[in-house]
């Protein structure tokens, strides 16, 4: 069992992603990476796919990573870390290494939902002992805010801009967390840096479990979301409280919702502060706002239904 999170103790830990990296000010991602490192009770070897985090943290001859770190390409972080982990298993079996090391990836939604989905699915199926973390900012932010399959409905991106005919993205975003849960791996979860205790608890729990784990984290991007630089955590919180980004986990197939807002906020509270949704507030796009709310409601209700069913199944064991 992992130790509970104690902030007092975490405050004493060394920062393993140093300051001075070149991520944009107000970006959610380095905050998430630091939380992951703080939560870990083990040494970590990390891998990033090509993307914001990668290009901003290791520009030769400087590296912000105080731990062993590798980047090889865009679509293959899962395969790359699987190789590292397999070498570790091989050398451990031969007695050439004895330390307990954990293997973690930090990849954006482009490298995860889209171009990296095949290698991610493969690595999960093969059962590597690794934690794949996706920082989902909802578009190809590094290359300049292009649409990805994680881009939310209605959002304005540079490849699906909101115009006089097309109101931004016309498709629903891919539910990747659900896809990963369908791999029947030991642990899948969704987290947000606004709920840092929950995020760190999930990281700690994931790292205590052997086998493949997947964690999807909402990562605010003020450049792409067209929001203020000091709103990353506020927007992450609104994402959770509007149920746009539910906090939940699927452990050994059992779904648990970790946060149910006392009063579910309307989606517009999450959308309003973001320029990428500005056009949705024009009267002619009212239908789109309604449709988006319906999508979020459906996903949320589905999730509640599944978790309720799992709970019932849990309390009706065979001995009854």
């Amino acid at each position: 069992m992992p130790e509970p999170i104690r902030l007092k103790e975490l405050a004493k830990k060394e920062d393993l992603l140093t300051s001075g990296h070149r991520m944009c000010s107000g970006c959610g991602t380095p905050v998430i990476v630091k939380m992951v490192f703080l939560a870990s009770e083990y040494p970590i070897v990390a891998c990033s796919s090509t993307g914001c985090l990668e290009v901003s943290t290791c520009i030769s001859d400087y590296s912000a990573w105080k731990i062993p770190w590798i980047h090889s390409a865009f679509e293959n972080a899962a395969a790359t870390i699987a190789g590292v982990e397999s070498m570790y298993q091989s050398l451990k079996r031969k007695g050439k290494i004895d330390k307990e090391i954990k293997f973690v990836t930090f990849c954006g939604d482009g490298g995860t939902y889209d171009i990296g989905l095949q290698s991610l699915s493969g690595a999960m199926e093969r059962g590597h002992d690794m934690l794949y973390i996706c920082y989902d900012n909802g578009a190809y932010m590094n290359t300049g805010i292009q649409r990805s399959s994680a881009t939310p409905f209605g959002a304005d991106t540079t490849t699906r801009p909101a115009g006089s005919v097309v109101p931004g993205k016309t498709e629903q975003r891919k539910n990747l967390t659900k896809i990963m849960a369908a791999h029947d791996i030991p642990y899948v979860a969704q987290a947000s840096p606004s709920h840092y205790q929950d995020l760190m608890k999930k990281v700690r729990k994931a790292l205590s479990i052997k086998g493949p784990k997947f964690l999807n984290v909402l990562s605010a991007c003020n450049r792409g979301w067209r929001s203020s630089t000091d709103d990353a955590i506020l927007l992450s919180r609104l994402g959770v409280e509007t149920c746009y980004w539910p906090l939940y986990e699927v452990e050994k197939g059992v779904t648990t919702v970790n946060f149910i807002p006392r009063e579910k906020k309307p989606l517009v509270e999450f959308l309003k502060p973001q320029g990428r949704f500005k056009h949705l507030f024009k009267p002619e796009n009212d239908w789109a706002l309604k449709k988006f709310q319906e999508m979020v409601d459906k996903e949320w209700n589905d999730l509640l239904r599944i978790s309720a069913a799992d709970k019932t199944a849990d309390t009706t064991p065979e001995e009854q």
Partner: peptide, 28 residues
């Protein structure tokens, strides 16, 4: 053999896994 065999889902991943494994420090 004592080889750790990774039965990847594509050649792209085969080379990617070899890159990770080789960088990790062993014969690949």
């Amino acid at each position: 053999v004592g080889t750790e065999m990774i039965l990847v889902e594509s050649e792209h991943s085969a080379m990617s896994a070899c890159i990770g494994a080789s960088a990790a420090g062993g014969r690949v």
